[in-house]
Amino acid sequence: MIGKAAAGGVVETAVILIVAAALWFAPAFAGDYWLQIGFRALIYLSLAEGWNLMAGSAGLVSLGASCFVGLGAYVVFGLLNKLDMPPPLALALAAAAGGALAAFVSPALFRLRGLYFTVGTLALAELLRLTMINVSLFGGATGIFLAQDPPDLPALFHCALVVAFLASLAITFCARTRASVILRAVRDDEDAAAQMGVRPFRVKLAAFALASAISAMAGGVQAIKLGAIEPYGIFGLQWSIDVLSMAIIGGVGLRLGPLVGVIFVIALGELLADYPEAHVAIAGVILIVLIRFAPRGVVGLVAYQKLASRRPATA
């Protein structure tokens, strides 16, 4: 079983490599609009991949994505403004900061399970947001402006592509190796997994730290693009809600779920953008209908229909 999964992992890695290589040349032929959309999709894909690893594979449903997006943004701005550090190094350190914060808070957060963990991550995000608002060292509610001009759009697109590529590779590793079995064992029954010799704390920590590092790096890239950050926007709950809804719409725990969810939500947002008075209501109705009739997400619905269509032939 694992051997088959590992073979699938090689194919998946090859596909990710080919797609990333093809997308690298997108700025040469795609217009600014498509690069902007692509940038947004890649940032959200990175975040949704990390969230899907935590919730879908490890059973850690988080509402704290905004916490790590914001942390990454502030770390990157601090390093660029104060130390004039090269952006790739600043992004790598932002990822390390995200992972380190996850490791620091995990002893407390992992004492909470299920919905309590979810509320705990929400509280963590709020704690960090309020800290940034109230500490003038971090710019207070005014926030921080990037001292240097941000790179041009193709360079930002490449940055987002690298982050999404690293995120996808990491998730593929987790989904196609023995780690996948261990994660699911912890997700399905933490106590039973512990009885079998799995160390749930370490497994959950690995998933949490990896997802947090990815989120922080994505937040750093987003911040560079914005050129200005303030705590209400960059630590906004909207990040967590967007990522959660993308993963749920695509299909929680399904490998293609985040990708499909990201494409669906961004496409819907763009299609409805010309109806500013009604878009929130229309998007809400569409999402309610989708969740009602496709509770396992778009990918789950398609997979179920494929299975259903094969049934008569195999009977």
């Binding site: 914005l226 926007g233 960059i234 008075e277 929130v280």
Partner: peptide
């Protein structure tokens, strides 16, 4: 366009 009171 509606920015939903969100700078992003």
């Amino acid at each position: 366009r509606d920015d939903k009171t969100d700078p992003n």
